[in-house]
Simulated scan of single mutants.
Amino acid sequence: MDQEQEWREKLTPEQYRILREKGTERPFANKYYDHKEEGIYKCAACNNDLFNSETKYDSGSGWPSFWQSISKDKVAVKKDSSIPNIPRVEVLCNECKSHLGHVFEDGPQPTGLRYCINSAALDFEKN
């Protein structure tokens, strides 16, 4: 069985579309955008720790937003030119290379970053 077939069997169709095909879920209609519990947000594909609830904030975007990842080695970023004339920076799980969302430079201090992440790309582990 090839790797993509394994992902199809492990993930829900929505998770596969987002994590493996670089899709996006609807704003304000996703699991974690208004989630307030304390804990760790993990990659839904490989369970890699990604974001701590202490860095989550309400960006008004309709997606879970974080101003920092747990550590720089947990997520990867790369230039995304998929929409002409709209430069973006894609956020990937550094462990399994799944698409998580995008990062923008309009977030709060101390980093000034807004990691805008799809809820379907995340699992949550309560503290």
Rank of each mutant, 00 (worst) to 15 (best):
D2M: 14
E4D: 15
Q5R: 00
Q5T: 10
E6L: 14
E9K: 13
E9C: 10
E9A: 14
K10V: 12
L11M: 13
L11R: 13
L11V: 15
L11H: 14
L11G: 12
T12F: 12
E14S: 10
R17H: 14
R17A: 13
K22V: 09
K22M: 07
G23I: 07
G23L: 05
T24H: 01
P27M: 06
P27G: 10
P27I: 02
F28Q: 04
N30A: 12
K31M: 11
Y33E: 11
Y33I: 03
Y33F: 15
D34V: 09
H35L: 00
E37N: 09
E38T: 14
I40H: 01
Y41S: 02
Y41L: 05
Y41D: 03
C43W: 00
C43F: 03
A44M: 06
A44C: 07
A45Q: 08
C46P: 07
N47G: 08
N48L: 05
N48H: 13
D49K: 05
D49S: 05
D49V: 03
L50A: 14
F51P: 02
N52F: 06
E54L: 06
T55K: 10
T55P: 04
T55L: 10
K56H: 03
K56T: 04
Y57G: 09
Y57T: 10
Y57R: 06
D58R: 00
D58H: 03
S59Q: 08
S59V: 06
G60E: 01
G60T: 07
G62W: 05
G62A: 04
G62D: 12
G62V: 06
W63D: 04
W63A: 01
P64R: 00
P64H: 02
P64T: 08
S65G: 01
W67P: 03
W67A: 01
S69N: 12
I70N: 14
S71F: 05
K72P: 05
D73P: 15
D73R: 13
V75H: 05
K78P: 08
K79Q: 15
S81A: 12
S81M: 12
S81P: 02
S82H: 02
S82M: 06
I83C: 00
N85Q: 10
P87N: 11
P87Y: 05
E90Y: 11
E90C: 08
V91E: 03
V91Q: 04
L92S: 06
E95R: 02
E95A: 08
C96K: 00
C96W: 01
K97N: 15
K97W: 09
S98M: 01
S98Y: 03
H99G: 07
H99V: 05
H102C: 10
V103D: 12
V103G: 09
V103S: 13
V103C: 07
F104K: 00
E105F: 09
D106I: 02
G107C: 01
T111Y: 05
L113R: 01
L113E: 11
R114M: 11
C116F: 04
N118T: 04
N118D: 06
S119H: 12
S119W: 15
A120M: 03
A121Q: 04
A121N: 10
A121E: 06
L122W: 09
L122E: 09
L122H: 00
D123T: 11
D123K: 07
D123Q: 02
E125V: 13
E125S: 13
E125Q: 13
N127E: 14
N127G: 08
